[in-house]
Design a protein around this nucleic acid. Structure first.
Lengths: 147, 147
DNA sequence: GGTTCTATATATAAGGT
DNA sequence: TACCTTATATATAGAAC
């Protein structure tokens, strides 16, 4: 694309390389924007030139993190390391703990108990009676203090 | 670049959009390869089309993780640290939810209730009585079924 | 280190199969 | 649907700032 055709191999002359880099970098960034606008695509483009300077384009409809999350799911490759897996595991554990407490709370409030068998219902009844006794005792104490 | 000039805005005709996507996706992937070969650039290009299918190019001289590390250093933005933070926040949220359910459960079991005031105790008593009524009703149903 | 100027190489829009 | 064709729009090599 230009006065002469060039082979696609490293440009040896370093100032030519630099000039070509600058021009093509602009070109590819433009292409990235265009495809995301024209076609609703989500694009992440990150370029480091030989000088170390970075250029990037991320589709406005998304974030890099989002794209990387999707990348991991689509490619099966993992980017975040074991540290994150540990955190994810902890989240799973907490969610399970949460769920079972949620269920226990419902039961104690008399909700969702049709699935319980007789033995479980008796245990629940005991627990509730105990709780009630404790609460009534405590309530009485409080009342007496106020008199 | 073609028989007609097009404006850079979303292509409304979906089959045109799909065709254009496919062509431009190939074009930009080619450009990404070219700039990395010609100019020693390190490129990461990830594209998700509207269909959800992913395409990527990473310069052979590097890895995505490497580029992302450099991205974080160069941009000052955090990626996995941000991810890490999100996970940590979720853990905090779940732990708080957990704690408050824990407390509610203890109260319903008559534990740790000395810190409650009279009004709170009355509300707790109501909740327990309600629960007990529900459980007793349900237990009776079960018993009748078995007879 | 980037730009601008052109001639030329490439990419691709619209159409056909 | 996806792949050819081809006229046209764009990108860019080389040269000069």
């Amino acid at each position: 694309m230009g006065r002469g055709k060039i082979e696609i191999k490293r440009i040896e002359n370093s100032s030519n390389r630099q000039v070509t880099y600058s021009k093509r970098k602009n070109g590819i960034l433009k292409k990235a924007k265009e495809i995301s606008v024209l076609c609703d695509a989500q694009v992440s483009l990150i370029i480091f030139g030989a000088s170390g300077k970075m250029h990037e384009y991320i589709s406005p409809s998304t974030t890099l993190i989002d794209i990387l999350d999707r990348y991991q799911r689509a490619s099966g490759k993992t980017l975040w390391d074991a540290k994150h897996e540990n955190l994810s595991n902890e989240i799973d554990r907490l969610k399970k703990e949460n769920d079972s407490m949620q269920i226990e709370l419902r039961h104690l409030k008399g909700e969702d108990i049709t699935s319980l068998n007789y033995k479980e219902l008796m245990a629940l009844e005991d627990a509730l009676e105990n709780g009630l006794n404790g609460v009534r005792g405590s309530a009485q104490d409080v009342q007496e203090k106020c008199m």
